[in-house]
Simulated assay, not measured.
Amino acid sequence: MMELLRQWLTGVTCAAIIVALADSLMAGGTVRKIGRLAGGLLLLAAVVKPVLEVDLAALSASTMRLEVESVPAAEEAGLDMMKSIIGEETGAYILDKATELGISCREVRVTCAVEENGVPYPVSVVVLGDMTQEEQELLSRRIEADLAIPVERQTYKSGGEEG
């Protein structure tokens, strides 16, 4: 980049020196006016030459490459956010169902995975709260029926114990 800038400044400076030298050597009158016009055009050409040499296809390709490289990171962040939202909403649903059944739960943690088509879904659940074996079985059946989370992937904890 610095090399290109140096070449451009050198070209503009050389053009300015040639125009000034030609202007000082020209006779007055119409010839001088035509010489100044030609010198101005030469100086203008030296100034805009880098703009005319820009490879728009390469510039567009590099911009596109930057956009494409940023897409997977954005998709991954969006997928993580979707998994988090689905986990929170599923946990809130389970807490509501437990309340409807008269079961006291302190907290529900839901873990999500991603299907082959890229859609997140709940795969396992940890329920915290003091529940009897009957309440656990009742809630477990409800979770399996409503959310398709099998009993094997449901964990119940009561004061550090797993059931």
Rank of each mutant, 00 (worst) to 15 (best):
V68T: 14
A113D: 07
P150C: 05
S158C: 13
Y93S: 11
R32D: 15
L59S: 10
K97E: 10
T111A: 03
G28L: 12
V54Y: 03
E116I: 00
T155R: 07
A73D: 15
P122S: 04
K157R: 15
E116W: 02
T63G: 14
R65W: 03
G29L: 03
N117P: 05
T10D: 15
A20K: 08
E76M: 04
L41P: 12
A77I: 08
A98E: 01
T10M: 12
D23H: 07
G39N: 05
E67D: 15
I86M: 02
G39R: 03
V126Y: 08
L41V: 08
S70K: 05
L66G: 15
R109F: 01
V125L: 01
L41N: 06
Q154G: 00
E107T: 02
Q133S: 15
L42F: 09
T10W: 08
V54Q: 08
G87I: 00
G29T: 06
V19L: 06
K97G: 06
V68R: 09
I103S: 03
L79N: 05
E134C: 02
E152V: 02
A16F: 10
E88I: 13
T132R: 00
A27D: 15
I34G: 10
V31C: 08
V48K: 00
A148R: 03
R153F: 11
V68F: 14
S104D: 12
E161N: 14
C112Y: 00
L101Y: 04
L66W: 07
V119T: 12
T63W: 15
L4K: 07
L44A: 10
I85R: 02
L128H: 11
Q133M: 13
C105H: 01
L128M: 12
V108Y: 00
L42Q: 06
L147I: 01
A15I: 02
A16G: 14
E88L: 06
E3C: 06
L128G: 12
G102T: 02
V119Q: 07
E75N: 02
G160C: 09
Q154E: 00
T90W: 01
V47P: 08
G163C: 04
R65A: 09
M81T: 08
L101M: 04
V48T: 04
E135P: 12
L59D: 10
T99C: 10
N117I: 04
A15H: 04
L43A: 10
D146Y: 01
